[in-house]
């Protein structure tokens, strides 16, 4: 028993305290959050754009080329592994450019997220009764006004919780960034383990950190969902 305790003490010491190794975890956590946060923001911007182009096309049969590009983008992103997308963006597109690797991660995960976000927004828009749009049109409002004042304010109730879930997914997916050398949480634990030759403790630590973040966020999303259910319409 005492042997067991002393092993825990040692592995804790060498994984985190010795040589200030805990700093890797901090850096990793910071980068994981940074990438996920900015990627989801980029994803939302792309997602809104793509969703509106596709919805506009569905309604008016205009913007044919933009719609084709948008649809292809969504299909390609959803049809290929995120790690492949990351590698293509890093090794092919940014190959000869001197660029911060975090930035590459944000771009790659943002582009990836945009496809999923656009589907979330599209589903949100489509969940609103068509009669709402038609009533808006029949009063002389234009597509943009109908979207802005009538459809999106209603759709947001379905969209926001789903976006929260998308952020949670993204938070976990950033671990793939380790593959191109981004020091996010997973890579941080890997660095520590490669020094101590002990994988157990670093991996458990970051697993707990991921869990705390995702469970906490899930709680927040549920709270938001309940709040939105109580809105007066």
């Amino acid at each position: 028993m005492s042997e067991y305790f002393s092993w825990i003490k040692d592995t804790f010491y060498y994984s985190l305290i010795y040589d200030d190794r805990y700093k890797y975890i901090f850096i990793g956590l910071k980068n994981t959050i940074l990438i996920a946060l900015f990627a989801v923001i980029l994803g939302v911007v792309i997602g809104i754009l793509v969703a509106l182009i596709r919805n506009y096309y569905d309604n008016n049969k205009k913007l044919i080329i933009l719609n084709f590009i948008s649809k292809s983008y969504v299909n390609i992103i959803r049809g290929t592994p995120v790690i492949l997308q990351l590698m293509i963006i890093y090794y092919v597109i940014f190959k000869s450019v001197d660029i911060n690797i975090l930035f590459v991660g944000i771009i790659a995960f943002g582009i990836n997220s945009g496809a999923y976000v656009s589907e979330i927004i599209r589903a949100g828009i489509n969940s609103i009764d068509k009669g709402q749009m038609e009533a808006g049109y029949s009063l002389g409002l234009k597509y943009g006004q109908v979207m802005r004042f009538i459809v999106l304010p209603q759709a947001i109730r379905n969209i926001l919780p789903a976006l929260g879930n998308e952020f949670i997914t993204l938070l976990k997916e950033t671990s793939v960034g380790a593959y191109i050398g981004i020091i996010e949480l997973t890579k941080a634990s890997d660095i520590i383990a490669s020094r101590t030759y002990d994988y157990f403790f670093p991996l458990i630590i970051i697993a707990i950190i991921y869990l705390i973040m995702t469970l906490g966020l899930t709680k927040l999303v549920n709270l938001l969902e309940r709040k939105l259910d109580n809105v007066n319409y």
């Binding site: 009669g131 709402q132 009533a135 029949s138 009063l139």
Partner: peptide
């Protein structure tokens, strides 16, 4: 200039 009244009312639910 052409008003329309629908069977299902279609009032804007958020307003």
């Amino acid at each position: 200039k052409i008003g329309m009244v629908f069977q299902q009312f279609n009032l804007f639910n958020n307003l």
